[in-house]
Nucleic acid binder design. Sequence first.
RNA 1: GCCGUUGUGGCGGAAUUGGCAGACGCGCUGGACUCAAAAUCCAGUGGUGGCAACACCGUGUGGGUUCGACUCCCACCGACGGCACCA
Length: 803
Amino acid sequence: MPYEHQKIEQKWQKYWDDNQTFATNDDTSKPKYYAVDMFPYPSGQGLHVGHPEGYTATDIMSRFKRSNGYNVLHPMGWDAFGLPAEQYAMKTGHNPADFTNQNVDHFREQIKSLGLSYDWNREINTTDPKYYKWTQWIFEKLYEKGLAYESNMMVNWDPIDRVVLANEEVIDGKSERSGNKVERKALRQWVLKITAYADRLVDDLDDLDWPEAIKEQQRNWIGRSKGAAVVFNIAESDEKVEVYTTRPDTLFGASYMVLAPEHKLVDAIVTDEQKQAVLDYRTTISSKSDLERTDLNKDKTGVFTGAYGINPINGDKLPIWIADYVLASYGTGAIMAVPAHDDRDFEFAKKFGLSIKPVISGGDVTEAPYTGDGLHINSDFLNGLDKATAIDKTIAWLEANQSGHAQTNFRLRDWIFSRQRYWGEPIPVIHWEDGTTTLVPENELPLLLPHATELRPSGSGESPLANLTDWLEVTREDGVKGRRETNTMPQWAGSSWYFLRYIDPHNEEQLADPDKLKYWMNVDLYVGGAEHAVLHLLYARFWHKFLYDLGVVSTKEPFQKLVNQGMILGANHEKMSKSKGNVVNPDDIVAEFGADTLRVYEMFMGPLTQSKPWSEEGITGSRRWLDRVWRLLIDDEGKLRDHVTTYNPGNLDKIYNQTVKKVTEDLENMRFNTAISQMMVFVNEAYKSEALPIDYMIGFIQLLAPFAPHIAEELWVRLGQDASISYVTWPSYDATQLVDDTVEIIFQVNGKVRGKATVTRDVDKDSMIALAKEDDNVQNFITGKTVRKIIAVPGKFVNIVVG
RNA sequence: GCCGUUGUGGCGGAAUUGGCAGACGCGCUGGACUCAAAAUCCAGUGGUGGCAACACCGUGUGGGUUCGACUCCCACCGACGGCACCA
């Protein structure tokens, strides 16, 4: 009887469901293992072959840990709010909730067909009011602690359709949908003060078991820098400008100043002659995106304001310019320009004929800026000092003269938390006509998203919720009228804490039970795509730290170990996409070859963390191997083959024990591709053997089970074992079987292999050298030459150096 | 431009601590089975030369360290991903 994957996979999936094999309890007597996949956005496209890669990896680890006596929590859920649903709803006139639920059902069915050992009783959905009640609750806590505030922030604005656009909806400065030219416009937004946690978000990275590259990206994103704030008085004015610099030591070299065009002080200091030029300049840059202002335009632009700043250290009068290379959102939105020692300032100074004054020796600043270290010149009391000393001395001078102070800055900006969208968690806030703002009382949460039959833009830049007057307008007991917040939360909100809810998903009283949180946190393994390296992981860490401060969770960090799976590319080595026609649908693979084949193939393709191309031949190879495993044990009539016996002639002892060792170690390190390769070697050896000792077959099936659980369960019972394999103790190996009495050693001459010999394991150095010298081929290379040196490592090799 | 990742047979990849480069799979070649084919099983398979033993070349390129380098160091080139003119 051939290997019938469809029958077998259906049978065991039903068995696991009926027996609740993977339902997890809070048995705290066992060590715990918490494995989480980054939950998917249930798009209308359905599952992609990239999804099962990470899911299989965490599933293998979960199954492996169950066999090793761990209490394993392995859940799945849906990140189901999001822009595509809203766009689709606008286009078709449907409510996003309806087809989102259909998409979720489709995803669940597809994921279940892969035989993943999730505890489906813990399934969560970010759009479920029982879930988002707690998302709203966290927001309210943030608000109460002063970490959520309203502020005018720049957004992408379509001036004709009067809607706010996401960055991804803006293509070449135009709206993807309407084609209208997009402007930057300041709009009232809810903002979360993530910058209050900046130091901790950097410092606590050190203890995490994350890829170094991801940690580095987070550090760069947060961008902590140490420098100084310097205050410049403005000539013929009472105003002052504060600038931020990482190089206060170059203060004597400052030759002009630049304010961001949006800087508050510009209007106050601009002279009448320059007013029009400043206005015009602002207009030209207003339509530019950040990208256009920076990367796409290498040619520096700017306008003189007519005003001058006074350098506190030497009284120099410095012209004040505005230029878009200075950003309002970083530092103080103003800089002192030292063109001799900064690339950008140099370029700007050259273009506009501003003076360039060297204050550090080492380069030729008529040619290029010098940014290296060196002794200071033209700098009064700093002359002759190096960079570090001069920085300290300048800061001391600034502080003594009330002209500045040491300052740490972050590149990280506060998190714009509101979206002008319908399909998101409502922000539980009411704006009253008396000018006050209050939270929706905690006992009234969740604030439900009202059902909308037809979504229309509000026309005011507000979300479509502004059209729903019944929901929008509220009246207090004292008759004061109010209006609900029409902004909703971003998709990042629900995904910033979902791994906590899995721990206690049905709790109506609190976000999750503290004792359960204490037992299960942190997440021991978190797997997902590298595209979330910064934003999602940073936001989730921020919320977690906030919840830690509140005493809700007892750990500082949410994810102890993080692994990023690589991308699965199309057969042409390009990213899979509909337009390229290289998309592979996992449903087709499961139907034709089976889920076990898909799992084995995706794990065998290469290291989990690397991108690798899909191959049609590759998948058939994996299927062929599972066929081979089946036929090794089962004959044409569907019976266990007679050569599976209790008699052990010993010829498989070594390879079996090697295989158990290698697969176990590879699993511990998530090296799935080499684990599978070792099992293939074992099967190849088993095919050559007359007798197959049943104990070895049982052990082998256990090794196979995490990778290909359905076929493993089936062969397991056919080997006479009780169903099911999921919690059976992992096999061990006999280390004494791994060592041979003899070893093969190699003979080298000048580092090149010239011969080999088989010797007893405990052979000594001298006899190895003697054997080497006797070797015919070695003699070809050493006779007539002087032996200069001999290196011998017992049991490994002899290297004779001749010259 | 900057940052990150990455370069090994025809292809995916292995070599975990500096010690036989190419495990395993795909593909290809040959054999067995078959009337034949498919499937399956067995064997071979980095390149060049040689009947062979074996020799030379070979891990993106050029240098270096070392008895010995895919592995360590320096410089460069290509591919992929991300993006901040961050003062």
